[in-house]
Design a protein around this nucleic acid. Structure first.
Lengths: 248, 248
DNA sequence: ACAAAAGTGTTTTTTATACACCCATGC
DNA sequence: GCATGGGTGTATAAAAAACACTTTTGT
């Protein structure tokens, strides 16, 4: 963001009245379906106005005494059961007019959304309380028009996912504790696209980083030579933290 | 962030009452003093409780109808006059208890802080309305204990600055429209440290990226061979946007 | 035997790093 | 003329990219 115009202090200072807010948390929850090679986002169908019957990001309003992160986890827990997940704050959206309930003839209060970004493993994530088909996984490149400014939020999250995968080990938060290198590769392929890297180069680069340890256990998935199971060695990774490193 | 514990939906859903918020914007405003080789942060001394007489990040509460970004710009404009600046949202801090005014015997309302990160040019930034020395530049590695959780916010911003400099052209938003390559180098040295890169390598890497155009105009700063003035070519940069590229 | 998947190695190209060295100016 | 900062080039090391090839399983 760049401005060339001179900044001038606002003339009226004390006279202006402050805005009252409710703070919501909206989650962009991704999962990766390796078998069908697709990235999915969890959406919820709204059954109330505004935007009744529109799909939206799962979210909630922050309660008294509740931290933002707790609110994000709560929303997550209400929708799916996931053992392994990665969660981080994404961005805050608070422009006036982003929620129709802001109108004076409605609640007359501002709604600020602190968005969170989550990554869960598709195979392990079960949608809970699914009685009315109001919660569903959507393919990330085939999303309907969403409620509020949730398209924008989703877009923001999708970019974060693609970028973060390249320099941060978040993939290993989502993979099971023991995994084959090919599973890692497939995960990367699904998110970044088929031709982001050759398998053998990806493989050697990843191993050279030195935080994946071979358990020695072999596992056979159908035909082909059995693969070694690896696991993420968080102690070996610790010194690499904060250092610039690339996973691609 | 990683959790291995099972997520369980909260039992009580509708009964809990929602939190009411005021939303504040706190700015981490950096400037780079190339001549003295230091990175500075703009701080303001609080003259009200809570944290009276503590130094804090310049901030303000968001007004009715005001966007978050506008609030950030307004705070900025009240403190300094800067022609060139870079501004972006940093992170939101909203944990319960982060502001003493949250107590029931005080205002009894939550205060959420959406922090913004700004970079301005020291030479061009004049502190305005400076009558009581309540606003000052502090060296980033010599900061007093700040009010609220502003230490944490500042830390977050400082990391963002160091990281973002390496892959994003924000330096050119802060430099004057025409600059010498040595000025760019000094800016990078001041922020990232002397030995982040050799000058001639930095130089050739930067030029190879192709978005700096030589104006042909030479300028002489004291002794030594006159340097070429370059300028940032935003058209040449446009296609590089979103692409992974390194400036270091 | 053969396809399929795992895993290794080799060659080529590109990029990073560390310098050495020439250029133009002020004093 | 020589110190000072500007600018170019080069030799070496390291990493990325492309791809050929071996190994071990299921069928």
């Amino acid at each position: 963001m760049k401005t060339n115009s001179k900044l001038k202090p606002n003339a009226n200072s004390k006279s202006e009245s402050l805005a009252d807010f409710k703070v919501g948390v909206d989650n962009v929850i991704f999962s990766v379906d390796i078998t069908y090679n697709r990235v999915l986002v969890l959406l919820r169908k709204r059954n109330n106005d505004p935007f009744k019957n529109y799909w939206s990001l799962p979210g909630t309003l922050v309660r008294q005494g509740e931290s933002l992160t707790d609110a994000a986890y709560r929303t997550l827990a209400e929708k799916i059961q996931a053992d392994n997940l990665y969660l981080e704050q994404l961005y805050s959206f608070g422009n006036p007019g982003r929620d129709p309930r802001e109108n004076p003839d409605s609640y007359g209060i501002r709604y600020l959304s602190v968005s969170y970004f989550a990554l869960v493993r598709y195979e392990e994530s079960k949608i809970i309380n699914q009685t009315d088909y109001s919660i569903a996984w959507y393919r990330v490149n085939d999303i309907p028009k969403l409620a509020f400014d949730h398209d924008k939020i989703l877009d923001y999250g999708w970019n974060r996912l693609k970028n973060k995968l390249q320099y941060s080990p978040l993939a290993f938060d989502v993979l099971p504790t023991e995994f084959t290198l090919n599973e890692v590769y497939k995960l990367y392929c699904t998110i970044l696209g088929e031709n982001f890297s050759d398998y053998s180069n990806f493989r050697s680069r990843l191993l050279k980083l030195g935080f994946l340890s071979d358990t020695g256990v072999k596992v056979s998935r159908g035909a082909g030579r059995p693969a070694s199971l690896y696991k993420f060695d968080s102690e070996a990774f610790a010194p690499l933290k904060d250092k610039p490193l690339l996973f691609i």
